[in-house]
């Protein structure tokens, strides 16, 4: 008996090692470009240009990052990070608020055209930002929102996906809860705030992560409506750092910026991951 178990453990151990080896190899492949970017951000310009490319970090880390953060190429990376943060948080929070309330309206209230509104929202799922980008630009320009946070955030705030997700979640909440709240004397908004919102906590966290990264990675829209470098977001700002014509690109600073651009989404994912897991462990239904 004991021998059998050892045998099984050995076999399983081997399988475990093999799968881990495979995974480690995969991670290395994916991680290599990021490693190269990091290495490039710690050396001097001549070291990068001269082949072979260095594979181990140099001694310029502090200098390069300070240069990127506080002076950058066109504009300090710090201000671009700030812009991106405002935009990403604005889009994520705005999308969540709007989709929560519209899903609440669609699921819990009976009003004329309820289904039509739902399908209209659902229909916009099929239209990516790029399809409606020209008219949207017209509207935003007409409102004088070019080079402003409102202009960066508002056109991206409505979200069919999130509305749909919350609708599906609200449909799984038993009707009896809403009825119990009614009998308890709660108004619709009290029910929304006291019962529905806390119950959607884990869904909100999950969506926040997805939407934050969606907002952070916006490229085309900020590129169109921000002409003032002080309003540049970091993802488009990296592209702006490339010189036009024959100028020499400042690769260490550009690479430092790339690494910096990656940090906030990673932080959001890692910090929210705890909420995910808690949400999974104590499922509240």
């Amino acid at each position: 008996m004991a021998r059998e178990i050892t045998g099984m453990v050995e076999r399983r151990g081997l399988g475990l090692w093999l799968t881990h080896l495979g995974m480690i190899a995969g991670v290395l492949v994916i991680f290599f470009p990021i490693w190269l970017a990091f290495v490039a951000s710690t050396v001097t310009q001549p070291e990068i240009v001269r082949p072979p490319m260095p594979l181990w970090p140099g001694d310029q880390l502090i200098e390069n990052y300070t240069a990127a953060l506080f002076s950058g190429v066109n504009v300090p990376v710090l201000s671009m990070l700030g812009n991106s943060l405002i935009m990403a948080v604005g889009i994520a929070v705005g999308k969540i608020i709007i989709s929560l309330t519209s899903a609440f309206a669609i699921v819990y209230f009976r009003f004329p055209g309820r289904n039509m509104f739902f399908w209209l929202i659902f229909l916009t799922l099929m239209l990516p930002v790029e399809v409606r980008i020209v008219p949207t630009y017209e509207v935003i320009a007409g409102f004088g929102m070019l080079n402003s946070y409102q202009g960066l955030i508002f056109p991206l705030v409505a979200s069919a996906t999130a509305t749909f997700l919350f609708r599906q979640f609200f449909l799984t909440v038993p009707d009896e809860l809403a009825e119990a709240a009614r009998v308890d004397g709660a108004s619709p908004m009290q029910f929304f705030r006291d019962i529905l919102l806390p119950m959607s906590r884990t869904n909100i966290a999950a969506l926040f992560v997805i939407l934050f990264i969606y907002g952070w990675n916006q490229y085309l829209w900020p590129l169109l409506i921000t002409t003032d470098p002080s309003m540049n977001t970091i993802v488009m700002g990296i592209r702006q750092m490339f010189p036009s014509g024959d100028d020499v690109a400042d690769w260490p600073v550009i690479m430092a910026t790339s690494i910096l651009a990656m940090i906030p989404p990673v932080v959001v994912v890692i910090s929210m991951q705890k909420l995910f897991i808690r949400g999974l462990v104590d499922s509240e239904k």
Binding site: E179, A180, A181, V183
Partner: peptide
């Protein structure tokens, strides 16, 4: 009136005390 539902319809995120006191809080 007060109603007891078939599936109890307790608010899942509230403690027993909060569940019982919700109507009074409102």
């Amino acid at each position: 009136i007060a109603m007891v539902f078939q599936n109890y319809a307790l608010y899942p995120h509230m403690s027993v005390a909060q569940n019982m006191g919700y109507g009074l809080r409102i």
